[in-house]
Structures are given as C-alpha cells and as structure tokens.
Design a protein around this nucleic acid. Structure first.
Lengths: 278, 278
DNA sequence: ATTAATTTGCAAGAAAAATTGCAATTGTAT
DNA sequence: ATACAATTGCAATTTTTCTTGCAAATTAAT
C-alpha cells in the first residue's frame, strides 16, 4: 500500500492539525522527505509533536519510518532504478543483444541520479550563447563529438570538431576567444590534449562543458560545467556510449528550447520542434 | 561552486579513507544525500568520524551542511524545478533527460522482438569473414558508421568509411569485389546513393548488411542481411541513435566472439575481451 | 632501525531530532 | 453554565547523529 493510500484511508479521521500536515506533505513530498518533523510542523503551522503523532496514526512505528516511506516513494535512488529496470523486459534471455539492452536500461534508469535538469539547461545555454562551438572527442568519444557537431550545425551554430592530432589541435585553438565555448568528453581518463585544451580555454575566457563518466569529478583542470554519469557495463570492461549519447540528446533538446524560447511539455512535441530544424 | 567542483579541487589531497567516501558519494549521490554520516561511512568501509572530517575538509561547517549540498545538487524538489527558468516540467519524472531515458529504455526493451541472436551472429560473421569492410552512413548515421569503422579496425579488419559525396562514393566502390562486405544504415528513407551502392555490391558479389529503423523491410534493393528495429521516439519526430547503436555494439561483441572462437556466457567477460582489443 | 608525520578508529561529549507525560485550550453534549 | 472529550503546545526525557580529543596504527623520511 502506498503512502498516499494510507493517507487516503485515514482522511476522515484526521484532526485539523494533522490535515494541515498532510496537505503540506502532498503539496511538496520531496521537501517533507528531506526535512525534519520540526520543519514539516513549522511549515504546516503546528507543533512537531503533532507530526510525530501523525506518523504513528498512519501506522508507522516512528516519524523516521514515515519519512523513509516518503523517500522510497518520491525520491529516485539506485533502488528506484532497479525497480525501473524490472518494469521493462524481465526476460532472462542470455543473448548478446538482450543482455546489452538490459545493461543500457539499467544505466539509463540511474541517469537522473547524477544529472539534474538544471545541468542540462545550463550546458545548452552555454553552447547556444557561444559565438562558436568547439567540440573535442578523443578515441570512441569522437563519435559523440561528430553527433554534436551535426546537431548544433543544424541549429545554425558555427561549430567545429577539433582534430585529435596535438599539432592540429593547437592550431585550431589559436582562434579561440572569450565568446566561444568548448564541449569535450572524457571517459576512462582525460583525453589526449585535455589539460592544454582546458587551460587555453580558461586563459581566453571561453566557457567549457564536459560530458564524462563516473570519475569526471576528479578531472583537472576543471571544466565550467561537468555532466558526469556512469556508463553501462563494468568500470574496467566494455562500456558503451549510450548514456553519454542520451546526455547529448537531452542537451540538444534543451538547446532547441533555448533557441525557440517556447514552453513545451511533452517530449514528442519537443521532438517535432527539433525535427523542423533537421 | 558545485559540490563536484569542491571535490575536484581537493582531489589531490584526499587520504585513502576520504577517497573511498568520495567514490561512494559519486557512485550513488542520492543515497549519500538521504543517509547519515554513519551510513555513508559504513558503505565506504571507514569510520563515521572520517566522514565528518571529510565534510569539514571540503569546506563545509558540518556534515549536515555537506549533506544539504548533496541534496540541493542531486535531489530535485519543487524549489529546484522552480529555479529551472525555462519551463521544463516540474517533477523529476518529466525532465528532458528522464523522459529520454524512459523512451530509450522502452525501445531497448522491445529490441529483441525485432532482431534475433542469429541475425546478430550472421551479420558479425559476414563482416569478420570479409577481406575488406566498407561502411556507409549518411546524415546522422555517419556517427554510427564512424563507430563501426573504429571498432572493426580494432579487430584488425581492413575497414573503410565511404564518403557521402556521390562522385567520391562511386570512386571508392570501384575496388569492391566478391570477398568484401558493405555495412550500411538507413532510417527514415534510403540514404543518398543507396540504390547504386546495393546494386554495385550485388553485381560484384559482395555481401551487404543493413542496420535500419522500422521501415527497413521496405528498402529496395534488399540487403543480404537486414537488422531493423524501431528507434525510440515517434516515427515522425525526434529519434535517437540509441537502438541502432546497441545493435552495432551487439554485432561488435559477436564479432569478437567470431574472431576468438570462444564460447562466453556473461557480458562482463565479453567486455573484458573487447577491452583487450582497445 | 628509528623517528616523525599522517591517518583514522575509539569513545566521550555535544548537538540535533524525536517522543511522551502533562496540562492548557478548544469544542461538543447536556 | 457545566462537564467531558479531544486536540495540541510545552518541556522534560530519550534517542539519534555528529564532533573532537586522544591514541593506536600506518606510512614516510632519515
């Protein structure tokens, strides 16, 4: 039985103070899940003792147990992602394709644990406000770099893919200035030329966006914006580009929003918008 | 300055215990945000006192302040959504990234309805037995073509990416003969030069493999092997490359199997094998 | 091998959060 | 108006969580 069902069952027997608490919980469940009994009580204009009593009344052994139920239901964590995975194909097929699909699904299910909507929006804004966009992807990430070059050129942005040869890289960076942006990728380790790239960008005042794997936070020098989420597969084994590609696609969609300044709700509407650019 | 930036700043000065804590935080930031110092410490295999000291080291006045920063950054609440100026949906489940992840997951979950293990294996065998592999991707599929060129070159295969200019395409196809293979992609409509490509291959007796979207079955001339699965998103709207990329990855893994003639069961073992090639 | 420095667990104490006995206040029934 | 029941704030107490002094263990330097 979900928490909301428990609350619904007790709805007719709630005292006025309890009702105010419940209204606050329903209005902002994640805030209630994160806060203390005292904070919820103050928000509802009752005493914290009332909050403790409400939890007991709803069948929980303590306020902490009540709050844990709120967290399970309203805050996505690794366990949530696991449940997410289970709602999709639960077949025990051992085919290569089936197992790949499951690994990708598992990684995709956790993606929001690491990257917030704000991060996506900020990255999109940095890129769309830049006069020129320089995209750098080394090794397998060159594939993602190519994808982003194509997408941002479709928006009409002056976008360049940086070569991976050190001399060529240096030459292409010569023209970088403060109203440009650099988009780069890093997975297992910093790509060749990474430090030089970041330092050059910092010197001229260009903004930098990095899409990375799990260890992205440990990269030095630091980019202006970092979007780091673990890819599917083991850290030391075969890893695919599906998670970073999904991040790229989300940035592209957000960039489309930035470009058009429209207020859209559904992804299919977003997709139609982007399609008009293609 | 974001929390990941603070962690990045201190990365070189972390003690082993601190690093384990940081790795746990990075691995599952929402769990860290919800739990206590004791819980995080236990997960990392250190004492809770170390967790308290790490928070101070990272510049927070207390562990609670550190945890609050985790919550601000990784847990979407009404306040976080409100700060998100461009009107993307308020709850986490409606974010661009969240919705994209779900769409990809849904499409991946269905992938085995359309493609059998035999198809993957046959495609891999065709490519691995070819003397030379020609890869053709037009438009966004160029990204997948690049990926496959990189992967098969890693296997030591003589692999060429065909240019999309018609004249260049014709010239490159001149050398095609019966022990070669052609790998191509087609999504909304046959790529430019597709018919000529397929007819030339057929004339010289080269094998052809096509990775396509839902409408792949309608393609003419028909390739020797067709792997067609619907991509995520609406047919007439924004579609991503995740599904075809997963097909590509499955073929690569199967090719690795073909190359080594080993019988492997788990994807992680497969991953280790492919990693040895990279 | 010895010494010094660093790291980190232990545990006492502090701080924060929750619980519960008590009683003031409010609402309802007579 | 009075009596009774219910509600809920107060504050003492309990529980949980965090902080920090101390010292053992480990690592680094000589």
């Amino acid at each position: 039985m979900s928490l909301l069902e428990k609350i619904s069952d007790q709805a007719t027997t709630l005292t006025p103070g309890e009702r105010r608490l419940v209204e606050n919980v329903i209005d902002s469940p994640t805030s209630a899940a994160l806060g203390t009994a005292g904070e919820l009580a103050r928000a509802a204009g009752v005493h914290e003792a009332t909050a403790s009593r409400l939890a007991k009344k709803l069948g929980f052994v303590s306020y902490a147990a009540f709050r844990d139920a709120l967290r399970d239901e309203f805050i996505a964590t690794r366990e949530t992602a696991t449940r997410f995975e289970k709602t999709i194909a639960e077949s025990t097929s051992d085919t290569i394709l089936g197992e790949l699909a499951r690994e990708e699904t598992q990684a995709l299910g956790r993606i929001e644990e690491f990257i917030t909507p704000e991060q996506i929006s900020e990255a999109a804004q940095i890129l769309m406000r830049a006069r020129r966009i320089f995209v750098y992807g080394y090794g397998n990430a060159e594939v993602l770099a190519l994808l982003m070059v194509k997408r941002f050129r479709r928006f009409g942005k002056d976008t360049h893919q940086l070569g991976t040869d050190p001399r060529g890289l240096a030459e292409q960076m010569l023209g970088l200035d403060s109203d440009d942006a650099v988009l780069s990728f890093a997975f297992r380790r910093p790509p060749r030329g990474y430090a030089a790239l970041m330092e050059t960008a910092k010197e001229v005042g260009a903004r930098t966006v990095m899409i990375a794997g799990k260890s992205g936070a440990l990269l030095t020098p630091r980019p202006d914006r970092l979007l780091a989420a673990p890819r599917s597969g083991d850290q030391d084994a075969f890893q695919t580009l599906t998670v970073p590609m999904t991040i790229c696609n989300a940035i592209v969609i957000a960039a489309g929003l930035t470009a058009k300044e429209e207020s859209l709700k559904k992804l299919d509407r977003l997709g139609q918008l982007i399609e008009r650019f293609e």
